[in-house]
Design a protein around this nucleic acid. Structure first.
Length: 417
RNA sequence: GUGGGCGUAGCUCAGUUGGCUAGAGCGCCAGGUUGUGGUCCUGGAGGUCGCGGGUUCGAGCCCCGUCGUCCACCCCA
């Protein structure tokens, strides 16, 4: 029994999965940097106040924050998401707008772990600050869809909605409160609790007993100001122009309090578990101001790495790449030859590995086989004395003797380089 | 935070109504093959049966607690 294991909701990502993660982030970086986004690496913990702006009605803030007092008496928290950090960075550095950034990294929420939900979970995302153009909304959304396409995912649906500006949102919230309150008996106990915190989120209830009341509830579309409605329509127009298919879901309410106007969610149709939302985002026009900056519009999205990979598994795409060395060196003379040869090969960029502890040739050959190297080099006393080496092609098992001086060149040839 | 399933070898799992020294497959190590992997054969190492208590002549099995894990709810990515 090991004395220690990972804490609940955390885990080690081992090879080859770790290589898959790395590639995932690399593909994302390629997509968004091509679109002019710069990389930002915010700290993993910040002043607690930064994250309180995410929303006092959300459990992310009220119950799930990893917050603590540091040795200097500062109240800090591990970031539960990165949008607030990006906005704080914007206020701190005042970059020229539009400020387009992307990020990748872990976030922390104290939740009960389950499928696709961890206490430390990775997201990739983008944020754009300082632009109020609906064409940008469409471009950001299209970027997300393009990323999924690059992964090979085909069954990702885009849900779109507008929550209106903050006045609209507040009026809609009170209309919902009135609606649900006057039919409180028909509402599930859980949804009654949700109603207290945030009426919008009642629309998210998946409980069957709530379905009827939700269907009869007021529509967001009826509460949009003319300006917000115009913005929403232009977003849709731009999306169509970009060839992005979507469907308007006016029951789509996002979890965080700061969302205004455009909201969207990427839903995998290949996932059957509860967590079909593999990414989401929207506008958060008041957030920068909330953090003490100038009135600045913002929009962005975050994609869950685990869930997206789950969707990849379900669609059978973007598998874990197998990593292997090019050459495995078998040394029957004691091991020092293997050391020299490996160094020679690695110096010129050829991946090489070897065995240790003077293991038998048979054991070394097994290791060579396991390493996946297409080529192996064998050196015994005879070869060493004759200044030669054996070059063996693992698949098929043909081999021939080469001059020691010519070894690297011969390996290159065998590898087809 | 609520509810349910499951914790036996590195991994996947058997283990009967409680009853010999707790098993299999895969993996690992060694030998068969005194210089050669993948197939095959033989052997070996590896377990405080998650942990703590209880019931019993006797507990992997039953009871209580606890921790972990998985799933669902909640919440959300």
């Amino acid at each position: 029994m090991p004395s220690f294991a990972t804490s609940p909701g955390t885990r080690d990502i081992l090879a080859p999965d770790s290589a898959r993660w790395r590639r995932f982030q690399q593909v994302f970086a390629d997509v968004v940097e091509t679109a002019g986004f710069g990389h930002i690496i915010p700290p993993m913990f910040e002043d607690l106040g930064v994250f309180l702006r995410v929303g006092e009605s959300t459990e992310i803030v009220t119950k799930e924050m990893y917050d603590f007092e540091d040795k200097g008496g500062r109240r800090v928290a591990l970031r539960p998401e990165q949008t607030a950090s990006v906005c704080r960075a914007f206020v701190e550095h005042r970059p020229v707008t539009p400020w387009k950034v992307w990020y990748a990294g872990p976030n922390f929420r104290y939740e009960k772990p389950q499928q696709g939900r961890y206490r430390q979970f990775d997201q990739v995302g983008v944020e754009v600050l300082g632009v109020d153009d609906p064409q940008l909304d469409a471009e950001v959304i299209a970027l997300g869809m393009e990323f999924y396409r690059r992964l090979g995912l085909t069954k990702v649906r885009l849900s779109l909605n507008s929550l209106g500006d903050s006045g609209d949102r507040d009026r809609y919230a009170s209309a919902l409160r009135t609606h649900f309150s006057s039919n409180i008996d028909a509402l599930s106990a859980e949804s009654r609790a949700t109603l207290e915190r945030n009426p919008l989120r009642v629309l998210d209830s998946k409980r069957a007993e709530d379905a009827q009341l939700i269907a009869a509830s007021p529509r967001m579309a009826d509460h949009l100001s003319p300006a917000a409605e115009e913005h929403f329509l232009q977003v849709q127009t731009s999306l169509r122009a970009a060839g992005v298919t979507f469907h308007v879901d006016d029951r789509l309410v996002r979890g965080l309090d700061y969302y205004r106007r455009t909201t969207f969610e990427f839903v995998s149709e290949s996932l059957t578990a509860a967590h079909t939302a593999i990414g989401g985002g929207g506008r958060y026009d008041g957030l920068v101001a909330d953090l003490g900056g100038p009135d600045t519009p913002g929009i962005g999205f975050a994609l869950g790495l685990d869930r997206t990979l789950l969707a990849c598994d379900a669609e059978g795409v973007f598998g874990a790449p197998q990593s292997r060395v090019d050459v495995f060196v078998v040394d029957a003379t004691g091991g020092s030859e293997a050391g020299v040869i490996c160094t020679e090969l690695r110096t010129v960029g050829i991946g090489a590995d070897r065995a240790y502890e003077r293991r038998s040739m048979k054991a070394q050959m097994k290791s060579a086989d396991r390493s996946g190297a297409p080529v192996c080099i064998i050196v015994g006393d005879d070869e060493r004395n004759a200044n030669t080496a054996i070059l063996r092609t693992m698949e098929g098992g043909s081999q021939h003797i080469v001059q020691r001086d010519d070894l690297v060149a011969q390996v290159r040839r065998a590898l087809g380089r």
